[in-house]
């Protein structure tokens, strides 16, 4: 899946009332913090350093 396709899916959800788009954060650090502090949350980042408090699933292109 290409990034533009993902954007389209979120746009469709957000602007048609069908669902809720992901919450936007400004930096990778903020994203990891948000995932840490929200039960059941998922986030995606390009690189992740040693993080013990979150589960990391690596996706290889």
């Amino acid at each position: 899946m290409f990034p533009y396709q993902l954007d389209r899916i979120w746009n469709k959800l957000t602007y048609s009332g069908l669902g809720v788009a992901p919450i936007m954060v400004n930096s990778p650090e903020e994203l990891i913090n948000a995932v840490k502090e929200t039960p059941g949350a998922i986030g995606y980042v390009e690189n992740i350093k040693d993080e013990e408090t979150v589960n990391v699933v690596q996706i290889e292109a």
């Binding site: 788009a21 992901p22 919450i23 936007m24 400004n26 930096s27 948000a34 949350a41 986030g43 995606y44």
Partner: peptide
């Protein structure tokens, strides 16, 4: 809950 990085 899903989080996404803000682009430009």
């Amino acid at each position: 809950m899903l989080f996404k990085l803000k682009l430009k």
